[in-house]
Nucleic acid binder design. Structure first.
Lengths: 175, 175
DNA sequence: CGCAGGGTAAAACGATCACTTTACCTCATG
DNA sequence: CATGAGGTAAAGTGATCGTTTTACCCTGCG
């Protein structure tokens, strides 16, 4: 594994497990297995590193959510949480820690949520036969978001509950 | 207003708007309008102050969620967000910033979510005529949580969507 | 008046922060 | 063999962190 991949992997893990501000650069160099000089040559700055981590996270997460059914979407989320742990959405956490004042982080958050929303819309369009209901998509998105957050204190079972709710909502159709 | 109230109010606002670690004690003393000596006599430490803020927040939030219908619950959340802004659940943010390693914060998070869950259960029991469905309560809780999180990037409208979804779920009954 | 309680402003504390610099090492390639 | 690119370890940078200390100032009360 090359230096850049090692750095991004270590950084994502540390940021996720301990928080962004709480993670010092000395700990980062140790976990990434490289000198601070190389780290700064690769990352530029801590802020830029956070942005890079979020970009990579977005790619990896959406890849995992590349499914073609509502059930698959929530199963994929449950798998993700079982593999990565339940510590809440990393994008919202980054946004919250920086007070929403860092443009790059806010942009990454928006792009990530927009992409996820479009994926949900596509899944629903396929399931309901092209009938695109933006309100229903938003409700499924909220269930997905809520399951991610609630899993922090209720565990993976929250995802199963959200999954059942989403299915019931779609079956009930437009209210 | 006495010193303790001024401190808690200023601290809650700063923590919420800028993050916990990003808020320095110098800024806190300035906004609370007192010397650092008085602040430390009242708060003990920054960690203790965070815990106190969360306790006060729990009280104030649950007081606002003291309603007797499902519609009222989500309307109360919308009112809260309109008044306080949409920056996500402060308890989950505190938990995330500290990596879940501070016992007092984790305890405050658990207590808060447990109390909210019981409130939702009570509302549902009243609405469905005593039929206590714990899964339905969890689903409404997830919608509530999801709306709080999604409001950060989609605005208050997320709460209206969650409200409609909750109503549809309850009307559909046990799946 | 005398004095204690509770406050202030501001300096000082050591620790830690993100980041840079210095000095040295390794090694493939012309 | 010489060399330059790319790496390391470690010390140093100034700033900022949470917290404590110092010295002083009101003010209500016996």
């Amino acid at each position: 594994m090359d230096h850049r991949s090692k750095l991004l992997k270590a950084a994502e893990q540390l940021f996720d497990r301990h928080g962004f501000t709480a993670t010092g650069m000395d700990r980062l160099t140790r976990d990434a297995g490289m000198s601070s000089r190389t780290l700064y040559k690769l990352a530029g700055s801590k802020a830029a590193l956070i942005a890079s981590v979020l970009t990579e996270r977005d790619r990896r997460f959406l890849q995992r959510m590349d499914v073609d059914s509502l059930e698959g979407l929530f199963d994929a989320l449950a798998d993700w949480i079982r593999a990565e742990g339940a510590r809440g959405c990393l994008f919202l956490r980054a946004h919250g820690e920086t007070g929403g004042n860092q443009a790059a982080i806010t942009a990454a958050l928006w792009a990530h949520k927009q992409a996820l929303f479009e994926r949900i819309q596509a899944i629903l369009a396929a399931e309901t036969g092209g009938r695109g209901d933006p309100v229903l998509a938003e409700q499924v998105m909220i269930l997905h978001e809520g399951a991610t957050a609630a899993a922090v204190y209720r565990g993976v079972d929250a995802v199963a509950a959200a999954r059942a709710a989403a299915i019931a909502l779609v079956r009930a159709g437009p209210s």
